[in-house]
Design a protein around this nucleic acid. Structure first.
Lengths: 193, 193
DNA sequence: CTGCACACTTGACCTATGGTAATAAATAAA
DNA sequence: TTTATTTATTACCATAGGTCAAGTGTGCAG
C-alpha cells in the first residue's frame, strides 16, 4: 500500500465516526509524521510519554524489564494501529515501559496538548478514541482470560491464525514473551506440529 | 453511605468531565434503577447484552464456562464501578459470558439506544466513557502482565492490598479463579503467611 | 441439638512450563 | 567466502501450580 499515512489515519477514523472535509484538515494539522529506525527506542523507562502514535507502517514492541533485567513484552503492534504508554501519557508521570521499533517505522504522532485541543475542536475525535479504547479493553480482557486459562500451545495457534504476518516479521523470542512463555517453550510447541 | 445512587453516579462522572445542572437531569433521565438479588444472573450465555450498569451498591462476578463446565472468573466488581459484557453490548451479538450477583445489588442501568442518545445530547458523556475505557484498558494490561509474569503469591498480596474489602465479601473460590489459580493453591498461599 | 450443606484446608501425586547450558542454524559483517 | 553475531533448537532437571480425594470446620434448617 503506498497510500500516504495521513489518508490511512483518516480512513480508519471514518470507520467509527463521521468527519467532515473541513475537520479532516484540522485533524491532520495536529499530527506530525515521524520516523524511527529499527532497534531504536520510541520511549524509555523513566521518561514521560509525550505522544500517542499511529503506526502507518512498521512494527514495535512495548516491554518492561523486571528486577533481574528480564524483558517482558506485553504488546507488539504493527501497521494501522496505535502505540503509546497510555498511563504515562494520561498521568504525565514517568513511564515504567520501553517501546522499541522492530522495523524501520513510520508514525503519525500527536502530543497530549494537541490531542486535548483536537477533542475540543473535533468532537468526533472523542467518539473515535472512546470506541478505540473500548475495543482495546475488550481485547485485553480476552487476552487476559486466554492467558489465564488456555494452555500455551492453544494461545500460540490462535496468534498464528490471527496474525500470521507477525511470525514473518517478529523474532520468536519476542513472540514467546508476548505469549507469556519462554523461547524454549515456544520452540517445543512449534516442533509438535 | 446512604447518598442516593443517582448522586453517586453524577459525582463520579464529574471527576472526569464537567456537567451542567441541566445536563445532570438529562443524564439521569436515561438511567433506570434496577435491583438484583444474590445468586441471580444479570446476564447469561447466549443472551444479547442490552445494558451497561453502574453498581451503586453490591457485588457481581463475570465468568465463562469452558467445555468441561469449569467457571473462569475474569471480573469481580463492587460499589461505584461499571459492569456489562461490553463486547456483546457493542456488537449486539450473543454473549459468551455470565454475570451473577454475589450480593443483593442496586444498579443504575442504561440501554444501548439510550446511551447513544446520551452521547449526542451530552457530549461530555463521550468524554467520560472515553476516559473510563482508557483507564480500564490500562488496568487490564497491568493485570495481564502481572498474570503472565508475577507468581500467584504476589498477585494475591497485591489484590489483598488493593481490595481488602473483597476478601470479606467474596468467597475464596471466586477470588482464586479471579487470580487465575485453583482454590487449593490459594489456600496454600494463604497458609504461608 | 442434630444433621447437612457450604466454604475452606490438607496431603499425595502429576504435568506443563521454567531454568540453564550447550548446540545448531541463520543472518550480518568482514 | 569466512567469520562474527544473533536467533532458534534440544536436552536435562527443577518447580509452581494443577488434580483428585479426603478432611475440617461453621452456620443454619429442621
Amino acid at each position: 500500500m503506498d497510500v500516504p499515512g495521513e489518508n490511512k489515519l483518516i480512513y480508519y477514523m471514518k470507520k467509527w465516526t463521521s468527519i467532515s472535509e473541513r475537520e479532516e484538515a484540522v485533524i491532520l494539522s495536529f499530527f506530525e509524521p515521524f520516523e524511527i529506525k529499527r532497534k531504536k527506542d520510541l520511549m524509555r523507562y523513566g521518561e514521560v510519554c509525550k505522544h500517542i502514535d499511529f503506526i502507518v507502517k512498521g512494527c514495535l514492541r512495548s516491554y518492561y524489564a523486571d528486577e533481574k533485567g528480564i524483558e517482558h513484552i506485553y504488546q507488539i503492534r504493527m501497521d494501522n494501529s496505535w502505540i503509546s504508554d497510555l498511563e504515562s501519557f494520561y498521568t504525565q508521570e514517568p513511564s515504567r515501559y520501553y517501546i522499541e521499533a522492530l522495523e524501520d517505522t513510520q508514525l503519525l504522532r500527536i502530543t497530549r496538548g494537541n490531542l486535548e485541543k483536537l477533542y475540543e475542536e473535533v468532537p468526533g475525535m472523542e467518539r473515535y478514541f472512546r470506541i478505540l479504547f473500548q475495543k482495546a479493553y475488550v481485547n485485553s480482557l480476552k487476552r487476559l482470560s486466554s492467558t489465564m486459562w488456555e494452555p500455551a500451545a492453544d494461545r500460540y495457534k490462535n496468534l498464528l491464525k490471527r496474525h500470521p504476518d507477525m511470525f514473518q516479521r517478529v523474532p520468536m523470542v519476542y513472540i514467546a514473551s508476548y505469549l507469556g512463555i519462554t523461547p524454549e517453550s515456544l520452540s517445543r510447541i512449534r516442533k509438535q506440529k
